[in-house]
């Protein structure tokens, strides 16, 4: 268990508990840490406790007990200093929709004591990078959903935070915008900004993050690096698009139940970890079955996530029956 934060840890959370005034227990003693420079995914279902954890870290929610350190600074001792290192992109739109993007980012810089001359340069830099420059004098409520989310990212970066916390930043936005955001965030992380991301798009977490924590019912049920996590996968399922339609009877018997015909031009193949996919291709070729494309059936992290939640539910049922 983490006893105290160190300055090379961007965030350190220890035995964090939160019970809301209506009696709902949101966090039951969560502990984890995020190293400086990391790209960390905080995952979990709706209501699992992700946003509560973020809210406590950013002073939007009051904790019931536990400790939070931001770059070694205890939030109970000097929250002001701790907060100056954080940039938050919240789940809900939380800027004044009647303001212009320009005013929103400039005012935000003011809250962090950024000198006006620097704030003007920063505003131009981030609004341009995030393709919002042409809309800087429009009323914010007229921006599209994706633009509003980008504006919240630009705003969060105005004071050059060392830790950027993104709470479902790509929710409800189109794939193209999401891709450009991924690129931007990766670039930012490479420049040294620690990023904590919560998302329901597990493909996003898999692509961007190096470490992952999964919260379920207010408890951290997993804290691992992505590589170790994927080693837990026993098999993966691939979907092959065939050149020509085939009949199920022509499927090679030597592959047993690992090959299934979904439709005349689509085949699903289960491949155990440590097995080579080449064996499957060779066998299919021998039977004159040729594929034109291949893709994983489901996202690897998605599979693991569902498996973990299933295990957790079984464990809970067993505990209850005892």
């Amino acid at each position: 268990m983490i006893q105290s934060g160190t300055s090379n840890q961007a965030l350190s959370v220890s035995n964090l508990k939160k019970t809301y005034s209506n009696g709902r227990i949101a966090l039951k003693g969560v502990s984890f840490s995020v190293e400086e420079g990391d790209f960390y995914a905080l995952l979990g279902r709706n209501g699992a406790g992700k946003s509560t954890t973020i809210g406590i870290t950013c002073s939007l929610v009051t904790k019931s007990s536990g400790k939070v350190y931001i770059f070694g600074v205890d939030i109970d001792q000097d929250f002001g200093r701790a907060k100056s290192n954080i940039g938050l992109v919240p789940q809900e739109i939380n800027f004044n929709q009647f303001e212009t993007p320009w005013n929103i980012v400039i005012n935000h810089a003011g809250y962090y004591g950024v000198p006006r001359t620097k704030a003007l340069l920063q505003a131009e830099k981030y609004l341009t990078t995030l393709n919002l420059w042409d809309y800087r004098n429009n009323t914010a409520r007229r921006l599209s959903g994706g633009m509003k989310r980008k504006l919240m990212i630009a705003r969060a970066l105005m004071h050059e935070p060392r830790l950027l916390i993104l709470d479902e930043p790509t929710a409800g936005i189109d794939f193209e915008t999401r891709l450009s955001m991924w690129e931007f965030l990766q670039d930012l992380n490479q420049k040294g900004v620690t990023i904590i991301l919560t998302t329901h798009y597990l493909q996003e977490a898999e692509k961007l993050c190096r470490n992952v924590g999964i919260i379920e019912l207010g408890e951290l049920i997993l804290d691992s690096d992505m590589k170790s996590l994927f080693k837990q996968l026993n098999q993966e399922t691939y979907v092959l698009d065939l050149v020509q339609p085939i009949d199920s009877q022509v499927l090679p018997h030597e592959l047993n139940d690992s090959v299934r015909l979904v439709d005349p031009t689509t085949v699903e193949v289960d491949i155990a970890r440590n097995s080579s996919i080449n064996v499957v291709f060779e066998t299919l070729s021998k039977h004159n079955i040729h594929a034109i494309s291949i893709q994983t059936k489901s996202n690897r992290l998605e599979t693991l996530f569902m498996e973990l939640l299933r295990r957790e539910a079984i464990e809970m049922q067993m505990n209850q029956s005892e």
């Binding site: 939007l60 954080i86 919240p90 939380n94 004044n96 809250y111």
Partner: peptide, 17 residues
């Protein structure tokens, strides 16, 4: 209004006393 539209959060997350 700041509470209702949630932009009070802009100041709450900042180091402004």
């Amino acid at each position: 209004s700041a509470k209702f539209q949630r932009f009070i959060e802009e100041i709450m997350v900042s180091p402004v006393p």
